[in-house]
């Protein structure tokens, strides 16, 4: 039985993902295409929201991944701080831009959906505002990574920023709730609630969520490999200059 931590070795990581990545990518595409085509063309219009409801198949998964990406960065940062595996820090770095794009997609689709439903592209609703704040956190995190030259220093600083940022993001979430009651409907999905969205919408939504999760996984793996190689190149060129 090999330990999970063997994959923290960059070489082992690259070797393993060489084999895994094609499957994940293909599966991501299959799930995305199935979920979206099913959702867009083979579900009835909502009796109240009309066909605009179909944007849910992009909006909900991307919003979900926007938050999960940050959580993944938080876990990766903790692993870096505690166990100091470089791959972990690089994975956090790799996930940030993907999470940022997911946040932007969620905001954009939300605005497009909001116009027909609420009559406005933007409202200072708690959920919308929290996402806007999350975007700012992503920007700060990415900017800090790119501002520091030494890789280990950057990994340490961004990890601590991620930790502190998570606390403040959570605080902001509650602060914003307190500050303004919103227009946004409650959670579309939850495990313990009776009134989830109707089954006809629910199943394609699950498929497209799976698609987004796999897409995220594929992108993060790909980007982590790139980061590992980029770092390898930096190290080799530093050494060449020193000899």
């Amino acid at each position: 039985m090999t330990s999970l931590w063997t994959y923290a070795n960059p070489k082992k990581f690259v070797e393993t993902t060489d084999k895994v990545l094609p499957f994940v990518s293909v599966l991501a595409i299959v799930c995305l295409v199935t979920g979206l085509v099913w959702g867009f063309f083979f579900t009835p219009d909502d009796y109240r929201q009309g066909s605009t409801v179909k944007i849910i198949y992009i909006h909900v998964p991307s919003a979900l991944m926007a938050i999960n990406a940050w959580l993944m960065m938080l876990v990766a940062s903790l692993i870096w701080i505690v166990r100091r595996h470089h791959v972990s820090a690089l994975a956090a770095r790799a996930a940030a831009p993907v999470g940022l794009v997911m946040t932007l997609i969620a905001l954009a689709t939300g605005a497009i959906w909001g116009q027909p439903m609420w009559g406005t592209y933007w409202a200072w609703d708690p959920r919308l505002t929290s996402f806007l704040i999350l975007t700012l956190f992503y920007f700060g995190y990415i900017a800090l990574w790119s501002a520091i030259e030494n890789d280990d220093t950057a990994a340490d600083l961004t990890s601590i920023l991620c930790l502190v940022g998570s606390v403040f993001a959570l605080l902001s979430r509650y602060a914003v709730n307190f500050w303004n009651q919103g227009l946004h409907q409650g959670a579309s999905l939850s495990l313990d609630k009776e009134e989830n969205v109707a089954d006809v919408f629910y199943h394609p939504l699950l498929v497209s969520i799976a698609g987004f999760v796999l897409l995220f996984l594929a992108l993060v793996l790909l980007r982590t490999r790139t980061e590992i190689r980029a770092r390898r190149v930096r190290v080799l060129s530093t050494r060449q200059r020193m000899e």
Partner: peptide, 13 residues
Amino acid sequence: KPMSVNAFDEAFL
């Protein structure tokens, strides 16, 4: 002493 270029391990160096 520099390590061999193929020692692509945890520390990258």
